[in-house]
Nucleic acid binder design. Structure first.
Lengths: 256, 256
DNA sequence: GGTACTCTCAAGCTCAGCTTGAAGGAAAGA
DNA sequence: TCTTTCCTTCAAGCTGAGCTTGAGAGTACC
């Protein structure tokens, strides 16, 4: 009996020319590994759970193994994004996907994420607690449309650090957003050397907040530490808001 | 003893002229009843729980009864809407409110994800263009629950200016929000002198942005000027976002 | 002074969203 | 073929968010 995708799940993209288009199907383990970069808390059992909740419905081999097509993976990624970034409960995600708005295919899914997400995307990066998701440089460049030199410059300045894994640079969510923001500023003519202004003020504020919460942060009581971390997040949010208000105030003088 | 709002929570809006401005304050039971129409699953214990989670902070009577001002109720309604319509967890709502991003529209209640996720209203205070609305000091104090000394301090520092009309100080929307933010920071122990850090960095950034847009802003072509103003708003928004990201990045190092 | 309302605090409850473990079959490599 | 690694189902368990409940006591107003 010829080995086909149907019965040979381990071969990720085995396909004979006469069988039609190459159907890249993956086993659950491969899918899990592939998504682990972007979603560190993914697990095989979670993927199975999502299927149990009728959010996924992959093909099966004769032996009962799950086989995920490319569009299955896209769908899964969409689910995970809606869950992580938009905080949607699974029952709502299921409705969104079921109500025709998100058939398979990049475009449709992108449209869904767009329409559902609206402008909320920023939220994910605003937390001090890092979820550990990492993104490879090419993806970041593609998404942010940043110039590669700019990224290097940011790294030279120590603004972002990245991580080298198997010859590829990876960046976390915050770094990705920093790159996006700086790219945006660059479009207006705010060059790299001007970033010093931003950086030094951020450093000063961080030092200030640290000083204030230092006792609690150093506490050996985990309860207390957790509270301090939450306070830190709130303080950061309020402080940033205040800075924005002060900036607006200054700009108003300039404009008027 | 004269009956005042402070000691008479049952009287929703009783106020004698000499007691100062009419302060419509409600007890928790009244608030609950008032919101029961729009939010059938509201309850007194839930409102108390939200306070426990640092989402609300109503005044108290001498006897310890909670007293909700009009703006407290607005805030509560916002919380409930974000929870019900946007599915946001409380910790995220807390952040949203702290960062001043959750404006409360008075439009029809959006029941579905799609309509909610649509366009987000820009906050009045985030705009460089001033709409000219002014608020008298007593109202500001009531809404922000700021200490009067703090407001004076801010004025002494030149952070806010106010306007004296017929013996009453008036503040614009941005100033009101600055007061609110500073009050919030004060609750965490960030005192007045620490504000210098924020102010000087805002000044530097304003100078930077001005420098970049100076030619366009000085233009005698009104079209060009208008464009420059819009660019200024965008720049301010992106710059503030960048600052926040950099702060988060720094704090993450601190946190562990 | 009675009654309706409110307070705090600790304990408990429910549900979403997974995880774990047992018992066993399927696929790939030697 | 044998062995290892990966996969299967199913039931039970766990964790944290988001409240609720109840006890015991005080407050406000007629």
């Amino acid at each position: 009996m010829a080995t086909t995708n149907e019965t040979n799940p381990r071969a990720a993209d085995a396909a004979s020319p006469e069988d039609g288009p190459p159907q890249k199907s993956m086993t659950i383990g491969a899918v899990c590994k592939g998504l682990a970069q972007e979603f560190p808390d993914i697990s095989i059992s979670k993927i199975r759970y999502l299927e149990d909740q009728k959010l996924l419905n992959p093909r099966r081999t004769a032996g009962g193994y799950r086989l995920y097509s490319a569009s299955d993976v896209v769908r899964l990624r969409t689910i995970l994004r809606l869950q992580r970034d938009e905080f949607l409960p699974l029952r709502v995600i299921r409705q969104e996907l079921a109500s025709g708005r998100a058939a398979d295919g990049e475009g449709a899914v992108a449209a869904t994420v767009q329409s559902v997400a609206g402008k909320r995307k920023r939220r994910a990066s605003v937390s001090v607690a890092d979820d550990g998701a990492m993104y490879p440089l090419p993806d970041v460049l593609e998404e942010t449309r940043a110039a590669p030199e700019l990224v290097r410059e940011l790294e030279d300045y120590g603004v972002i650090k990245g991580e080298l894994r198997a010859g590829v640079h990876y960046y976390d969510e915050t770094e990705r957003e920093i790159i996006a923001a700086v790219t945006e500023l660059a479009r207006y003519g705010v060059g790299g050397r001007n970033l010093r202004v931003f950086r030094s003020s951020a450093d000063r504020e961080a030092a200030l907040l640290q000083q204030i919460l230092a006792p609690a942060l150093r506490s050996r009581n985990p309860e207390r530490r957790k509270e301090a971390l939450e306070a830190l997040e709130n303080l950061a949010a309020v402080a940033s808001h205040l800075k924005h208000l002060l900036l607006i105030r200054d700009l108003r003088k300039i404009a008027g």
